[in-house]
Design a protein around this nucleic acid. Structure first.
Lengths: 407, 407
DNA sequence: AGTATATAGTTCAAAGTTTGAACAATCGCT
DNA sequence: AGCGATTGTTCAAACTTTGAACTATATACT
């Protein structure tokens, strides 16, 4: 029940049907590969001839290819089709406060190489470092000719049309343009997006087969707290690409001071920094943010805290449980408001999901409007999966598989 | 950049292009009427022949009609086209705690009749009352034959597939089925939706021409507080049709008790009841909800309070300003999270918008993540416009104009 | 070995679209 | 009356899906 925008619509031409069915075929191959033409025809309930036409077109364009033949009980063997992913490459970059990650990935989201270095806070220095590292990585894997773009995930707000990083508080950046110099230095298209949105894209496009619903949210809990929202299979950007900033919804108007300058934000209760502060008994409102980040980032990390909690340190355990409780309370706001089919949560603290699940669930139930909302499936995205990097890769690959714009 | 759901897609047939363009034509006529075939062809950038084909089809189906001829500087006069709205009727019903409203409307959303009666809290009695009133209203306006459905807005959660009212706390209803008996008693299709969602639909489908964007939220502040969310021209329902329940997001975890049973909800700060309680110095957490509603609803209403504030009662003014401040603070959560192009706010308190605007804006700015978010346009939907009733009407009319489902 | 049956994939004409041009209708102006 | 401009219609071409017939290939059965 979508309304057609009478000031911005897309008329159907005589090739619109083809475009639609072409993308459906492409997506079905992606999801169900290996799959034969006949199977595609059955799934789509169209004639095999149409599928043949489309498939041949897609093969000619190099989007899919014919693989081995399959087996049937009787009759001619089907020839299996696959999406061409192995020899199409993407460089994914994840810029974080402590370190920057580079990954070489194929179009299937499989990791081919991974490297890390300390983040340089001067944008021009960082770009220079990135350019030569990207070049080296591509050459080392003989992927220079077949790399189709660079995706970058950053912890901050990004202008989607220009790619300019408007504000990345943890990095101390304002109006930074990484895209132009990086694109020039590598001769590749560059796509930049903020981390929670990238994570949501990763789940949508590179999630476990068939498991990702069409309406979900991805909550990232690390230095900051953000949400990537997917509704009707589409990432919600909002007017200024700011949508998803639920991290600064208040839990208490007289709560702890937040890095954003406001007070009582969800983030101020559950970010890694907040958890560490709870453990050490810091008063967040007294200390300078930068100092806190440095302390937290360099000597004693959230992972150390989680290890202590796991090994029986009662104070550590209490700090983590506090975070768990507030995580659940804030989650209720998002789930009541958007009622998604499921939630993905990512961040270091999710390595301790077994320890905190009960607490999160209970807190969520306290504030969820209905039983069903309280029981929204929660899926863990562990750090080992590199959701940010996979999302950065999805920035490049997704447009190829997206539905055509129509009506 | 929508992802095609590989388990639930819609293949394009050879008539898909036609369906798409047909709906575009219909919507363009709706938006720009009176408009000629040639104008449609120019706007859509297609040949006039295509438009002629589609228009003739739409005329044959009775969706649009030819009106007077227009004027041109030179050449043949265009024949203007109009959407057939005047002789197609809808009954809209708004059930509220204090009173129930019935409106007879045409497909253009124009009010033809309006009546009111005290809400009966027994569902079967209410249905009986509604049935004979609907019949009487239709007969009085000779609209029985051309009425195409009944839309109902209720203050509570509705199961969209069955039409069952799952929970309407102010009415004290749980799992009430109005739709089946009402449809049977009137022989008309019945559509039920909760009030904030209905209000959003009203803005989307019956808003001032051209002014309604494709991404917006509608916040209703009355007995309860709810939000209707529209993203990409589509109402966000969520998994259980619960989406939009931001009314129970916390402002403070140790705040006043809310009717929902939780504590510190946005609603507990800004509902009409909360505003009255602030004025009278009630402690919301001590009193029984029903008692409060009765007191508030029957002798001294929010409108009385607003009148006192306007006439200089300092305590009344302070109570209203308190509500304004919390309205702005909670609004920040919604606007940060969804970053819509604009917000509509409806409810009795908006009759005093001139008094509260500055306070709301300031509170919003305190917690908005960016300047742009703080400056999100706020549009007032006054009670005189009956947004709920117009939304109830839109429940019936909207499906006719919606975009076809594709890909 | 030969035949029947089943399945995969291709070929071809029919039907429904848009596309683009030519044509008929209508009106104002000179 | 004739010219030019604009609206609306008609007709063939190009591109779709649709549906049936056809070829290719494999297995099962006699």
């Amino acid at each position: 029940m979508r309304k057609i925008n009478p000031y911005d619509f897309q008329v159907a031409t005589r090739s619109t049907s083809r475009e639609i069915n072409r993308q459906i075929v492409l997506n079905l191959v992606r999801e169900h590969q290996p799959i034969s033409r006949a199977d595609l025809a059955r799934r789509m309930k169209v004639g095999r001839n149409v599928i043949s036409m489309i498939v041949n077109e897609l093969i000619a364009e190099g989007l899919i290819y014919e693989g081995a033949t399959g087996k049937t009980v009787r009759g001619r063997k089907p020839t299996f089709l696959h999406v061409r992913t192995q020899d199409r490459f993407v460089v994914a970059i994840d810029i974080r406060f402590s370190r920057t990650f580079l990954m070489l990935s194929d179009f299937g989201g499989h990791q081919l190489a991974l490297e890390t270095f300390d983040t340089l806070f001067a944008p021009d220095e960082l770009v220079e470092e990135l350019i030569w590292r990207v070049r080296r990585m591509l050459e080392a894997h003989d992927a220079t000719a077949n790399c189709e773009g660079i995706g970058v995930a950053v912890p901050g707000m990004v202008d989607h049309s220009t790619g300019i990083i408007l504000n990345a508080p943890t990095l101390g950046w304002r109006d930074v343009d990484l895209r132009t110099p990086l694109a020039k230095g590598t001769a590749l298209p560059v796509y930049i997006e903020n981390a929670p949105k990238a994570c949501a894209l990763a789940e949508m496009w590179l999630g476990r087969n068939g498991a990702t619903p069409n309406n979900f949210v991805f909550v990232t809990v690390s230095d900051g707290v953000g949400v990537g929202i997917v509704i009707n299979g589409e990432l919600v950007r909002g007017r200024d690409n700011v949508a998803g900033e639920f991290g600064h919804a208040p839990l208490s108007l007289d709560g702890p001071r937040c890095l954003c300058g406001s007070v009582g934000c969800w983030e101020a209760y559950i970010s890694n920094l907040a958890t560490l502060a709870r453990y050490f008994g810091y008063d967040l409102s007294r200390l300078k943010p930068k100092k806190l980040l440095d302390d937290g980032g360099n000597d004693f990390t959230i992972n150390d805290l989680l290890a202590r909690a796991r090994s029986g340190d009662e104070r550590a355990r209490a700090a983590v449980q506090g975070t768990a409780r507030y995580l659940g309370l804030g989650l209720a706001t998002v789930l009541n408001g958007l009622n998604p089919e499921c939630v993905y949560i990512g961040g270091e603290i999710m390595t301790a999901w077994d320890m905190i699940e009960a607490t999160v669930r209970q807190a969520l139930a306290e504030r969820a409007m209905t039983e069903r909302v309280a029981q929204t499936p929660i899926r863990v995205s562990t750090v080992g999966e590199y959701p940010r990097l996979r999302g950065a890769a999805a920035l490049v690959t997704a447009p190829i598989f997206a539905a055509p714009r129509v009506a």
